[in-house]
Amino acid sequence: MNNKDLMLQHPLAKYLRQERMPHIWCEGCGNGILLNSFLEALDELQLDLDNIVVISGIGCIGRAAGYVNVDSFHTTHGRAIPFATGVKLANPQLKVVVISGDGDLFAIGGNHFIHAARRNVDIKVICANNFNYGMTGGQYGPTTPLEAWTTTTPYGNIEHPFNLVHLAAASGAVYAARWTTLQVRRLKASIKKALQKEGFSLIEVISPCPEIYDRYNKLGTAVEVMKWFKLVSEVHKAYDPAKAVITKNRIIIGEFVDIEKPSYGRLLREMTAQVKEDLEGENTK
């Protein structure tokens, strides 16, 4: 069978905009694995695709919005979360997923992240954390580890990185998990869980960036980086997110937060209905 026909037989074919394949991501980049896990989760849940919206910001991973065969939008840098908030509040039946990068979500978009989490807006944020700005050539960002080499930290990074799951937990997220691109089964399970839960969720995906970050930091080939993930990943259940370190020798992964809390949208609708009822009552008096 030729390549084109085979592509259509791939179990995830209908979830991809085939005319855009192959995607732009480098050989061994984790972004493709993240997208694969997300699409497998959609497939297993058999959700109505008309009710799924994917929103990205700018960055290599931001291209995901253009590859998924559902309604999607590629926003300006840092603005995926406010855009997603608008979509969700305007049409509450939609499942709204933000797929974006560590730089997009936590540098320029950092304030949106903490406030959407605090308000418990019912959106699912999947962050490809490759520890740098891949798309623009490897500048340091808010998740770059201390001492790491990037084009803007030529003597090593002297800033302390955010711990994303801790930040999500402290800001009010109802679900926060971290996996690497090696734990594809668990990542998929997490995405499925978040999609079925009400409230703000963060799934952090530690992801290889073989062409830029990993190469500058001499981490080896993509296979070697994946083997490193395998070697140092420690799976924990309900671990204290404050202690969920990412170092050369330890990457703490698992689900850190899984709680229930009414979402912003639900409270807003309830209040609007109540106020309307009260006003109508007054008018008929």
């Binding site: 069978m1 390549n3 085979l6 592509m7 037989q9 791939h10 394949m21 192959p22 480098c26 050989e27 061994g28 694995i33 090696l182 073989p210 080939t221 993509a222 296979v223 994946m226 083997k227």
Partner: peptide, 17 residues
């Protein structure tokens, strides 16, 4: 098992894992 050869970029994940 089907390999869509022209989509492959040669990362070797499937071979390795």
């Amino acid at each position: 098992i089907h390999v869509i050869t022209d989509l492959c970029k040669g990362c070797d994940f499937c071979i390795e894992f």
